[in-house]
Design a protein around this nucleic acid. Structure first.
Ligand SMILES: [Mn+2]
Ligand SMILES: [Mn+2]
Ligand SMILES: [Mn+2]
Ligand SMILES: [Mn+2]
Lengths: 153, 153
DNA sequence: TACTAATGTTAGCTAGGGTTAAATTTAAAA
DNA sequence: TTTTAAATTTAACCCTAGCTAACATTAGTA
């Protein structure tokens, strides 16, 4: 059964929190970089290119903030940036962006499934998408898939 | 049925992202403040008091970082702080901390339910707990409650 | 082609949250 | 009660990510 689980003895909450906070981030990029990459990716997918102004519009930040972040993403190898000319995602940047897209997708799908309304599902997905362990992602996928199957039965 | 939902036409992802990023935070406290309050609350619950060193240990930060944040939390009215003496959570601080405790609880419970292992559930809960809309929280509660009922049937 | 409007970038500043090194204060031991 | 050790705080920094104002470039219009 999907929901077969056992109630573990309530382990020390503080130890769990300590464990959670003691992890070093191995990703080498920040949540905010992920947000920018996500938007750049969606813009390129939709219009073929991503302008400073469009990025700033969808992230609700000023254009200088976009320029600065784009320079940083160029430095970190997530995209190639030519001043005044344009942005191209690298393999690396595309991979991160696609990951965000999938996570966001999955989360919205799940949230809507349990009855959360569309706009709120998207708002929460935007926050949660940065904090999913691969294992969690996998289990959530399995769950959503199984739930879909049950519905269409 | 718990999982009755309809597949909405895939609305523009960019618009959804824009909507999500256009929200002003009405909470007046940061995610990090929430983390500190959570740990302080758990420490006091367990030992009766929360020292600088213990807080630093469970958040994996240096003691000066703790002192600084505690000063800020005093300023914001979440706790009363007496230099070198100690910390007492106010009504306001307690309320925030209890909220974190509940959200963390609920998330771990749900994640374990779908098969995520204990330690990873806690790690993800620690990240996600700051990004749950009240509506999402409610639906997740309902879901977990319903799932529990089904198991014990 | 010359001028103007739109777009993009740079400069300089802010706030949040973190660090290490150097005081202070409190607690423990002699 | 003095001396030493532990805990805490302050000082002086760092980095991320944001902003406004000013400047530079590109694109569109006359
Ligand atoms: Mn997203
Ligand atoms: Mn996001
Ligand atoms: Mn937590
Ligand atoms: Mn947390």
């Amino acid at each position: 059964m999907v929901l077969g689980y056992t109630m573990a003895k309530k382990a020390d909450r503080l130890e769990a929190i300590r464990e959670a906070h003691s992890l070093e981030t191995e990703t080498a990029h920040t949540d905010r970089m992920e947000d920018y990459l996500e938007v750049i990716y969606e813009l390129i997918k939709k219009k073929g290119y991503a302008t400073t102004i469009d990025i700033s519009k969808y992230l609700n930040v000023s254009s200088p903030s976009v320029t600065k972040m784009v320079q940083k993403l160029d430095e970190s190898g997530h995209l190639n940036y030519e001043k005044y000319r344009g942005i191209v995602l690298t393999e690396k940047g595309t991979s991160v962006a696609e990951g965000m897209h999938e996570k966001h997708n999955l989360l919205v799908e799940f949230l809507k499934m349990i009855g959360v309304k569309d706009d709120i599902a998207n708002i929460d997905a935007e926050g949660i998408e940065h904090h999913l362990h691969p294992e969690t992602l996998k289990k959530l996928e399995d769950f959503v898939k199984a739930a879909k199957k049950n519905i269409s039965r």
